[in-house]
Simulated scan of single mutants.
Amino acid sequence: MSKTVYQTDHAGLFLCAVKADESPLEPGVYLLPAGAVETPPPEDWPEDKWPRWTGASWALVNRPRQPEQHSPAAKLASFLANNPDVAALIEEQQQ
């Protein structure tokens, strides 16, 4: 048997609903994944907010921004632009 619980990250921000399984040794006791809580987050919230577990209840905080995802080629191009000495070494090796 299992029940739905609510997974948070290390900062307490809501991630998703997950299943907690019943303990095989203690009927009626559920094994919660690390960081999960039994209290459901709000059903909905404004676009600029996100639920965060405070340890006692859910609070709506400013929505965290996702880090920009750059392609490996874009990261390399940025690195070489900021490190012309490395770019020069690569250029020398190719000649």
Rank of each mutant, 00 (worst) to 15 (best):
T8P: 04
H10Q: 14
G12R: 00
F14T: 13
F14L: 15
F14M: 14
C16E: 14
C16M: 00
C16A: 11
V18R: 09
V18Q: 10
K19N: 09
K19D: 13
A20W: 01
D21R: 10
S23L: 05
P24C: 04
L25N: 03
P27D: 12
P27Y: 07
G28W: 08
V29H: 13
V29T: 08
Y30W: 05
L31D: 11
L32D: 08
L32C: 05
P33H: 02
A34C: 04
G35W: 00
G35M: 07
G35P: 08
G35E: 07
A36D: 07
A36H: 00
V37D: 04
E38I: 07
T39Q: 11
P41F: 04
P42S: 05
P42T: 04
E43M: 04
E43D: 12
E43C: 03
E43Q: 10
P46A: 06
P46H: 12
E47P: 07
E47I: 03
D48P: 02
K49S: 15
W50T: 05
W50K: 05
P51D: 02
P51W: 02
P51F: 06
R52M: 13
R52F: 08
R52W: 01
W53Q: 12
W53Y: 11
W53V: 08
W53E: 13
T54V: 10
G55F: 04
A56Y: 08
A56V: 06
S57W: 06
S57M: 06
W58I: 00
L60A: 13
L60V: 01
L60I: 10
V61R: 11
V61S: 07
R63Y: 03
P64S: 01
P64A: 08
P64N: 00
R65L: 15
Q66Y: 02
Q66M: 14
P67G: 00
P67R: 06
P67A: 11
P67E: 15
P67I: 00
Q69Y: 10
H70M: 11
S71I: 01
S71E: 13
S71H: 12
P72Y: 07
P72V: 11
A73H: 12
A73Y: 11
K75T: 10
L76A: 15
L76P: 09
L76Y: 01
A77T: 03
A77R: 13
A77F: 07
S78L: 14
S78P: 02
F79Q: 12
L80R: 09
L80M: 10
N82G: 10
N82I: 04
N82Q: 15
N83G: 01
P84W: 06
P84T: 12
V86Q: 09
V86H: 10
A87G: 09
A87E: 12
A88K: 15
L89M: 14
I90E: 12
I90H: 07
I90P: 08
E91I: 00
E91Q: 14
